[in-house]
């Protein structure tokens, strides 16, 4: 298996860090830390120096809140993407949006990947990725309406639902012209799922990997981690990293995260243990 993002090509042993860069005043974790453009640009510089492979830029928080129309979303992200592209010509840039008009605008200024985090609510999104040769992340939200919370959602078999829906979305994207090697799938922990569902998806992540599509996981500081340990936002890093390690062992390929340095270490540690990457330094017992 191989997949491509921007000009880079990866194989099934890749474990990539996708750093979250919010252009929002109200996201749950950073609470507007990178709302100012200079702060967001500095965040990009920092995550690149910390070893991020790509950045995921978003202009609307996932949780319910004030409505942000397409014009405002574009004001938040398009110019910013253009600046990031100018400053980091080789950086893989993803944009988190469900709107095809926003996707078109950011692809025009250099975005490489559209992260369709709401599961295909805009059916034209794949055609934009196809038009620009961009990659596309297909996500499973269980039919959840954009920016709403799950309420009494149940599945006969959540993983079967995730797999069937993601494979259908991925094949549809390819049929609409997205390069097969530029389609990723994301089970979307917490989206359209209670914590038991997200934990089961994590437990059976190998079933997603077995589809042959590259798997992106977005685990960082989410509620299912918080509920697993009864920890509030701000105290979920260890739980996130444990989940990251297990997901990496199961074979996921891209990790959307707030904390880059720690995630990089966890992923590299898994890669070294699995034999996919030599140790950085090997002297003990050899001198």
């Amino acid at each position: 298996m191989r997949f491509r993002l921007g000009r880079c090509e990866f194989n099934e042993r890749a474990r990539l860090v996708m750093a979250i860069v919010n252009r929002t005043p109200d996201s749950f974790y950073d609470r507007g830390l990178t709302w100012r453009e200079d702060a967001a640009l500095e965040r990009v510089r920092q995550v690149v120096s910390e070893g991020a492979d790509l950045v995921d830029i978003g202009g609307i928080k996932a949780a319910p809140g004030a409505e942000i129309d397409a014009a405002e979303e574009m004001r938040r992200v398009v110019g910013f993407v253009e600046q990031v592209r100018t400053e980091h010509p080789d950086l893989i840039i993803s944009v988190d949006t469900w709107r095809s008009e926003v996707a078109r605008a950011v692809c025009a200024v250099g975005a490489d990947l559209i992260n369709d985090a709401w599961g295909g609510v805009d059916p034209e999104l794949p055609s934009v990725a196809a038009e620009f040769g961009a990659a596309l992340v297909c996500t499973h939200t269980g039919g959840q309406i954009v920016r709403t919370r799950p309420h009494r959602v149940e599945y006969d078999d959540v993983v079967a639902d995730v797999v069937a829906d993601l494979v259908r979305q991925a094949e549809r994207a390819v049929a609409m012209g997205v390069e097969r090697e530029r389609v990723l799938i994301d089970p979307a922990h917490d989206f359209g799922k209670n914590s038991q569902h997200s934990l089961e998806v994590t437990r059976r992540l190998d079933e997603l990997v077995a589809t042959g599509w590259p798997v992106l996981v977005s685990l960082s500081n989410k509620d299912f981690v918080g509920e697993a340990l009864d920890r509030p936002v701000g105290e979920r890093l260890i739980g996130t990293l444990a989940t990251t390690a297990l997901s990496a062992w199961a074979g996921a390929h891209v990790y959307r995260v707030h904390e880059v340095t720690q995630t990089r270490d966890v992923l590299d540690m898994v890669s070294v243990i699995s034999g996919d990457l030599p140790p950085r330094r090997a002297v003990r017992g050899l001198a």
Binding site: L277, P278, P279, R280, R281, A282, V283, G285, L286, A287
Partner: peptide
Amino acid sequence: TLLLVPEYAGRV
């Protein structure tokens, strides 16, 4: 030294 054989080499 076994540091000179490839089988145990690290990345650096």
